[in-house]
Amino acid sequence: MSGAGLMLARSLATLAAGALFGFGLSVSGMIRPEVVLSFLHFSDFGLMLVMGGAVLVVLLTYKLAPRLLARPLLGDHFQAHPSAWNRDTAVGAALFGVGWGLCGVCPGPAIASLGAGNWDLLWALAGIALGALVQGLRARA
C-alpha cells in the first residue's frame, strides 16, 4: 500500500474503532449521566458489567495480538502506555472522581453524546476542555 493509502486506511480504522466505542457507550446507557449516577448511588450496578465486559475484551486483545501478529495490521508497532503511581496520579484520580460524581459524565460520553443530540452535555464538554487547559497551563513543561 502506498504511503498516502496507508495513512487513509489508518484514519478510517481509527474512525471505525471510535465508532464502535461510541456505539457501545450508547447501547450501555453510559451517555446518560443519570445511569452513571444511579450506579454511584448504589441503585443499579450496570456500570460494573460495562467496565468488566470492556476490560475483558481489551485484556485478551492486549495479551494475544502481539503474540499472534508481528505488528498491527496497519501500523509498524504495538504501542504501550505505562502508567505510574505518584502524587499527580493520586491527586488527579481523586479530583476526577469528584467531578465524575458531581456530573455523571466522563470524557468518552461527553464526546459521544453529541452524536445522540444531547446538547445539554456541551456544558460538561466545555468544562472538561477548560479543566484540561488549566491543568496544562499550571503544569511544569
Binding site: 488527579g92 469528584v98 467531578g99 459524565v105 472538561i128 488549566v134
Partner: peptide, 8 residues
C-alpha cells in the same frame, strides 16, 4: 463537574 473531570 466537567472541569474537575478534565483537570483531574
Amino acid at each position: 463537574g466537567g472541569f474537575f473531570v478534565g483537570y483531574g
